[in-house]
Design a protein around this nucleic acid. Structure first.
Lengths: 135, 135
DNA sequence: ATTGATGCAAATGATTTGCACCGTG
DNA sequence: CACGGTGCAAATCATTTGCATCAAT
C-alpha cells in the first residue's frame, strides 16, 4: 500500500479516494497550494468532489499533524505536507512560496529566548523579496 | 497641534475626529488591537462611528505608511503604529502580542540572503510561546 | 450494518463597497 | 461650497456547517 494510505490508516482515518488524492498531491508538490488550487487540480480526477470536502479533509489532516497550514499574508491559506515549522521565502513578484532550511532557525531562536522570558514553542518566519527569476 | 494631526495633514489627508482618535489610539498602545477592538474602545467617545469607518481609516493609514497590519495567524488582522517590520512574540495562553527589537533581524536576514538568491525587501517573524506571566 | 465521509446548499464572520448625507478645508 | 469622509446597509469572499446520502470497515 502506498505511504499516504498507510499514514491515514495509522491515524485511524478512513481511507477514501479524495483523502488519498489530497494528501498525495500535497506530498508531491513544492507549491504550497491553497484549498481552491487543490480543488481545481483534482477536479478532473474527481468531478463530483466539492470544495467543502477539500476544506474538511485539510482540517482533518492538519489536526492529525500530517500537513500544516501557512498564512503567508494572502487572503487564503496555503497548505504544506512538510509539517516542520520551517521558514519560507515568498516572491512578491510571481507569488511563489519556497521552503527554507530549518537550520536557519537555530540562531534566531536563541536570540529571541535571550531577549524575552517567553518559553517558545513555535514560530512562523516569512521572508519577502524577488526570486532569482523575477529580480 | 498634536503630532497625529500633523501627520495626517502632512499626508494630505483631511483631519477628522475619527481619524485622529484611531491614529492616536494606535500610537499610544502596545496592544496591537484589531479593527473590532479599536471600534469598541472608541465607541464611548464616538457613539455614531461605524466599523466601516474604522476599516476605511485603517486602510488609508496603512497605505500612507502611518501604521502596519499584522497577521499573527488569528481570524482578524491587528494594527501597529510602529511601521518598522519588527518581529513579534505571541503568548499562546493569553493572546498578548509583544514587539521584539529590530536588531534581532540582522543575523537572520544575512543567513537567508546567503541561502537564497532572493533580493529580500521585507519579512514577518512571529514567535509563539508562553509569556512570563502565563508560563 | 454502523459509523464516519461526502457533497450540496445555506450560514458565518471578517472585511469591503455603494451611496446619500455631512463636515472639513 | 466643493469634495473627501462618514455611516448605514448590502455585498464579497474564504471558510464552515447542517443534513441527507453514500461507502469503508
Amino acid at each position: 500500500m502506498e505511504e499516504a494510505a498507510a499514514l491515514l490508516k495509522q491515524k485511524g482515518l478512513k481511507v477514501t479516494p479524495q483523502r488519498l488524492a489530497i494528501l498525495n498531491l500535497l506530498r508531491n508538490t513544492k507549491e504550497h497550494p491553497t484549498a481552491e488550487t487543490i480543488y481545481k487540480k483534482l477536479a478532473s480526477d474527481f468531478p463530483t468532489m466539492s470544495l467543502a470536502t477539500v476544506y474538511k479533509t485539510l482540517e482533518i489532516l492538519k489536526n492529525m499533524g500530517l500537513i500544516q497550514e501557512l498564512n503567508v499574508g494572502e487572503s487564503s491559506f496555503r497548505y504544506d505536507a512538510n509539517t516542520n515549522s520551517h521558514p519560507h521565502v515568498v516572491c512578491i513578484s510571481c507569488g511563489k512560496v519556497e521552503d527554507l532550511d530549518e537550520s536557519l532557525l537555530k540562531d534566531v531562536l536563541e536570540e529571541v529566548s535571550q531577549y524575552t522570558d517567553y518559553k517558545l514553542v513555535d514560530q512562523k518566519l516569512y521572508f519577502y523579496g524577488y526570486c532569482p527569476i523575477c529580480r
